Amino acid sequence: MMMALKLFENVILLLKMNKYTVCKICEGEIKLINKKYNLIQCSNCEFIFCSTIFSQDQFIAVYDELYNKENAIYRNHAVVEYAMLLENKKIKVGYHRSRLLKKHVLNGKCESVLEIGSGIGLIGSYIRNENKQIKYLGIEIDKESYQKSQFLKLNTINDDFTVIDTIEESFDVIMLWEVIEHLQDLRLFLELANKKLNSNGKILLSTPNYNKIYNYPEREEDAIFQDKPPVHLNFFTKENIASIFELNHFVKCKATVKKFPYLDIKNKKFYIDFLKSIFNHYHGSTIYLEATKE
């Protein structure tokens, strides 16, 4: 953990500070809302994002530290998932993701799916197990994760999302699970996604809920309770994520928030938050969005 945090500090210190001066989605006026992490908010679409512009090399170095080094923060998570896939165990993708996949992908109508940030191939393998007829393509920036997905014989590409523009096919569904918060050029992604979706095509995604900060009334100033820049660059609420997609030619934008806290029976706060969630006073950790091409 300390090694990763030190890496992020060094990246920020060494970076030539290129910054956004207007909203990167709608070019509206912006105001600083978090000094510590250089977070700004648009007065028009209410989008919250990091004002610093990072390089592609910096992103690759950060993700290598997060996932691939011996003591990486998320290495164990990836190792457990990969072992599950290698051993042909039942693939667990979570209640909310499985619900969206059943509704929009495994519905007998969807023929093709593109996943941005496909990782080691958890979702790709899940879809293949449920319906081998669905054409699946994954894009993953991390080389080691990509190589694991290749070992699993999944159709994947080792690149960032901009490679979409070179792909000839179009898709019925484009998915991003805990990925959209990492995309620096979000407007370009939205343009390319719209271009590559078939008529009435769907975007499905999950992302951290910025408003979960309100679950911590005694929080330190500028605390955000999710990965800090340059890992997370975009910060969403139920309201602003719908606005962002509507501004970029998507309709029927339905954003829902995970209602209950994650199970943690040894933590007193879990019981407090659970009671709050029953009375709709809890800000769920994750937002799920489904949106349709205009």
Rank of each mutant, 00 (worst) to 15 (best):
K195V: 00
F189H: 02
V173R: 05
N200Q: 15
T207S: 10
T207V: 15
T207P: 01
F189V: 06
N194T: 02
W177Q: 04
N194D: 03
I174G: 05
A193S: 13
V179C: 02
E178Q: 15
Q184D: 11
N198H: 13
S199E: 15
N211L: 15
F189N: 00
E191M: 12
V179H: 00
G201L: 11
K195R: 09
L183C: 02
I180P: 01
A193Q: 03
L188E: 07
N194R: 12
S199Q: 15
N209H: 09
E178G: 11
M175T: 13
K195M: 02
L188Q: 10
A193H: 08
S206P: 05
E191I: 12
S206D: 09
E191H: 13
N211P: 03
F189R: 02
I203C: 08
L204Y: 00
K196P: 07
L183T: 06
L183F: 00
L190Y: 08
M175R: 06
L205C: 15
E178W: 09
D172G: 11
L205N: 03
K202V: 11
F189Y: 03
N209M: 08
N200K: 15
N200L: 13
V173S: 09
Y210V: 10
N211G: 05
L183N: 00
L176A: 14
L205I: 06
Y210K: 09
I180A: 04
Q184A: 10
N200M: 13
H182C: 01
K202I: 13
P208I: 13
K202G: 08
K202C: 09
N198I: 05
L183S: 01
F171W: 05
D185E: 15
S206R: 07
P208W: 01
L186I: 14
I203H: 08
W177Y: 01
N194C: 07
N200W: 12
M175P: 04
V173P: 06
L190G: 04
S199H: 14
F171I: 05
E181P: 00
P208D: 04
G201T: 12
Y210Q: 08
E181Y: 00
L197Q: 08
L204V: 05
L190W: 03
E191A: 12
L205R: 02
G201I: 08
K202D: 04
L197F: 13
V173E: 04
S206T: 14
L176T: 09
K196H: 13
N194G: 14
L176K: 04
V179Q: 01
L204F: 01
V173N: 08
